[in-house]
Computed example of a mutant assay.
Amino acid sequence: MNVSEDGSLFNQSDDYSDYYNLEDLVSPCPHDNNQRTEMWVGPYVHSVICILGFLGNSLVILTYAFYKRTKSMTDVYLLNVAIADLLFVLSLPLLVYNQLSSWSMGSVACKLLRGSYSVNLYSGMLLLACISTDRYIAIVQARRSFRLRSLSYGRLICGVVWAFALLVSIPTFYFYDRYELSHNTFYMQGEGEQPENNQTSKPPQYVCEFRFNDSDVAKSVKLAVPGTQLAVGFFLPLAIMGFCYTAIIVTLMKAKNFQRHKAVRVVLAVVVVFIVCNLPYNLVLLYETISKFSEQSCQDSDTVQIAITVLQPLAYLHCCLNPVLYAFIGVKFRNHFQRIVRDLWCMGKKYMTPRRFSRVTSEMYVSSLRRSVDGSSDQGSSFTM
């Protein structure tokens, strides 16, 4: 059994003239220009994003795991953002593989890949909104910050964010599936011709995409999923960040601190990078969602797909910049990072020239490493703007 474009089931061995008027059939748009663009963007641009995102977010997680404990709400948010971004970039190679070749990893892997992509997307964006709210409370509502910015509250909020991201991703887990594209076989066969008699047919092509058995459900889900991604995954965080950072800039400009200009530049950099990376892609996604069920020429459809293919990596680039904007910009975090590099260098020298290190030297190194991990005197948040 196969699924037709309106969601109904039909037998591939039946005569197609029972379901369609063959003279009125039009082949799907080939999107040749978009396919050529994907062949360039997929392997190269996504590889760079994956490598940079993996290195940056791994360093943040490594710092929290071995050199700095989470002591504040800000630390909890930053650690969870790094985890979400790391899981996100690790899924990129499989997403590129799904775009460029036939999916051969089964239905379960398809659902897990697309579902985890959705969860990490929502959680990462919402956690950035939480960071802006945390900074708003710390600077604008400083008198109440000690009561509202506790470590337990931070962990609770992060748990709620992850649970909510999983909840809104349920349709993605459920409706994504692996299946064979039925129209590939359909358009390669003549009327009444059986697949086994067609000597020029290509091997079956499998995809990991939405699959529906009902046309009404298909229309609802194909509008609801990107609509939710736009509303919850972009416009809501954008509104929260816009309000919080505007109030922060106003408060900082009133302060008589000689470092206020540096803090304002940091805030502006966070906002500008967020908008530049995410706004173009989400605007194109909004246009595609609105025009999804309206008639378009193949050229217009191909142009929209090219825009999505080009602008999507720009949105993904934000995962690489988050460690720089939110973690490495802090002086104390940079000190921890320098300590990581120094300790890794010492460990490398130890294993490269083991005979030069005596047992006493090794014990002194381990003792100093423990003091560097456990002897931190940071109080409160170590990530100030």
Rank of each mutant, 00 (worst) to 15 (best):
L230G: 10
F328C: 03
K219C: 07
P323I: 06
L230H: 13
N98Y: 01
T246L: 10
Y365W: 11
W162Y: 15
L167P: 00
F258C: 01
M188A: 12
A138S: 15
K71M: 02
Y19P: 01
G192D: 00
T246M: 04
V276C: 08
G190A: 11
A247C: 14
T185Q: 02
M241N: 06
P323H: 04
I157T: 14
Q141I: 08
F274W: 10
T228S: 15
G42C: 12
I49G: 00
L55R: 02
I306A: 01
M385C: 09
S182R: 06
L95G: 04
Y117S: 06
V341R: 13
D374Q: 11
L321T: 10
R355E: 07
T303L: 11
Y365I: 12
S58W: 10
V3Y: 06
L325H: 08
G242R: 08
V161R: 06
V360W: 07
Q199L: 13
Q296G: 06
N57L: 07
R114W: 12
D302Q: 06
H336V: 10
Y351E: 12
S152F: 04
C29K: 00
K202F: 09
A307G: 08
M125F: 15
E5F: 11
S294I: 03
G115F: 08
K254G: 02
W103M: 13
H261A: 03
S291I: 10
L90T: 08
D300W: 13
L325P: 00
V41C: 05
V310T: 07
L113T: 11
A231F: 13
A247N: 12
F173W: 14
R211I: 04
L94G: 01
Y176N: 15
Y187K: 01
F328H: 07
S72M: 09
G330W: 00
G124V: 07
V276T: 09
